[in-house]
Write a protein that binds this DNA or RNA. Structure first.
Lengths: 148, 148
DNA sequence: ATTACAAGTTAGCCATGTCTAACTTAATGC
DNA sequence: GCATTAAGTTAGACATGGCTAACTTGTAAT
């Protein structure tokens, strides 16, 4: 039996298309942490001149060893540069990614606020949403936010 | 040195608030898979009368053993009921969760389409976004989508 | 009734992301 | 300059969510 189906009904949505969507979400999840880190690191650097693991930990809401492990991965991936017992810095690629993320983040926040959400909740929701917004959707959100 | 800071500048956003946002996102991620499964199972049941692991696998874009493992977890959590070599069904809690998710999913899709996105991309983006939308935001999206 | 094939399961591997506990290094204050 | 303490690292545990390979079960067709 392959998918008992009464033939004349319209296919709600092909199985493979859905599979692709879910695969894309999983893919997004894999990048998500990296994006949050470089975004935060960029911010810390512009605020304090450096990004220390302890500050990252406080803002990400995780412990220091978790930060260390993640930074190792990001270094492996060429997004950050680090030396033992020193602050973290972004590579050019890391900086580029951070900038793109920051831009996207701000668009999402601006959109949500424009929609009528309070800034605090907007920040919170944006944190989750931003990684799942396609380029096309981002444009639309921007247009909406920029509407007079 | 605790957070070198020049004192008179306004705090961009308190560290603990951000930590909370990220923790919320991680929390959402933990529920995400469960929600996607019950949502899909509900749909398969209404379409075909039953939800078979093989159909779930095809639509989630994963292999059968992965589905089996996940279904075991969902059963442990009381969301689905299953017997060896049989189709899967939802418990009352599972059905309730599925309904809530479906409702949310549709609002997000409707909103995106209303915004000007093509239905296919809307479905795709919704899959990622829906799990990160607060109740308040959902209301706003609904209002926007329902606007004449 | 047997056989063959599709579906489901089990076992075991791997990477990720979290944690705690224990240790090392660096910097600060006296 | 030495001791104290904060920051960073290392080791090791655990859960999750993927996978492949190999086995079992159920069913459909001859």
């Amino acid at each position: 039996m392959t998918e008992t189906r009464n033939g004349d009904e319209a296919e709600p949505r092909p199985a493979e298309a859905r599979a692709k969507s879910f695969q894309a979400v999983r893919e997004a999840h894999r990048n998500e942490l990296a994006e949050d880190y470089v975004e935060l690191i960029a911010e810390l650097i512009s605020q304090f001149g450096e990004a220390r693991p302890v500050d990252i930990a406080a803002r990400m809401g995780v412990t220091a060893p978790t930060v260390a492990k993640t930074l190792d991965r990001l270094a492996r991936e060429g997004l950050v540069a680090r030396a033992p017992y020193r602050s973290v810095f972004l590579t050019p690629e890391g900086a580029a990614l951070a900038e793109a993320c920051l831009r996207r983040h701000e668009i999402v926040v601006r959109f949500l606020v424009r929609l009528g959400l309070d800034p605090e909740t907007a920040e919170k929701d944006a944190e989750g949403i931003e990684h799942h917004v396609s380029e096309r959707t981002l444009e639309l959100l921007r247009d909406f936010a920029d509407q007079t």
